[in-house]
């Protein structure tokens, strides 16, 4: 996995709660057997009309969000199915961080496996970010995983966590900063796995 330290990018605001993975990537696109190529289908049912033309009413199609790499959204983002395709689609669609008050559990876990930073901030702070993103064309935020801060050029600054549990936050942050592969980490405990199997058989 590639390491993540810090990015500065345009913020796109999706002011909805409980956004589910069926919306992030519809089931009909889950038939690919690769991890790539999901970007064009990101939020497809909301973003495209039945004839395939862009739906101008969909928030993320606003011209001022073009090229966004940070998504700000409502609580319980990524609810529903375990499909990691949702994270692949967001990454493929250009996003490196998602800011929300809370994430659905499996989606949250999948973020860490794919260098998509789940930025957890209190609801009023996220609401403020979404409001600024909607008001200011090309509003940018810096997401810094080393300091665990988001900031903009106007002096806004807030500390975030990537997990509510402090130990898990620290561990996940460390893995992302260093691009550590979880299978590799577990393989270091191969002896413990073998010992466990022996003790049980």
């Amino acid at each position: 996995m590639e390491p993540f330290k810090k990015i500065t990018g345009v913020v796109a605001a999706l002011n909805r709660v409980n956004v589910d993975t069926d919306q992030i990537i519809p089931a009909k696109h889950l038939k690919r057997i690769e991890k790539t190529g999901f970007g064009p289908f990101l939020f497809e049912s909301w973003g495209k009309n039945a004839d395939g033309t862009p739906n101008p009413d969909f928030e993320l199609n606003a011209p001022s969000f073009a090229g966004a790499s940070v998504l700000a959204t409502g609580r319980n983002f990524g609810s529903g199915s375990s499909r990691e395709h949702a994270v692949w689609a967001l990454r493929d669609g250009g996003f490196s961080a998602v800011i929300a008050p809370s994430f659905a559990d499996i989606f949250h876990k999948n973020c860490f496996e794919n260098a998509l930073v789940p930025v957890i901030l209190p609801e009023p702070v996220v609401d403020g970010i979404m409001a600024r993103a909607n008001e200011l064309t090309g509003y940018e935020l810096t997401v810094d995983l080393e300091t665990c801060e988001v900031s903009d050029s106007e002096g806004f600054r807030a500390s975030f966590v990537v997990h509510q549990d402090p130990a898990t936050h620290e561990f996940r942050r460390y893995c992302m900063l260093n691009g550590l592969d979880e299978i590799g980490l577990t393989m270091e405990h191969a002896n413990a796995i073998t010992a466990y199997e022996k003790a049980r058989s």
Binding site: E84, N110, I183
Partner: peptide, 19 residues
């Protein structure tokens, strides 16, 4: 439930990494 990366992890190690 797990995502695809954890599926790979379990296939390779028979273990789950879980807080």
């Amino acid at each position: 439930p797990v995502g695809t990366s954890q599926v790979e992890h379990v296939l390779a190690t028979q273990c789950l990494v879980q807080a």
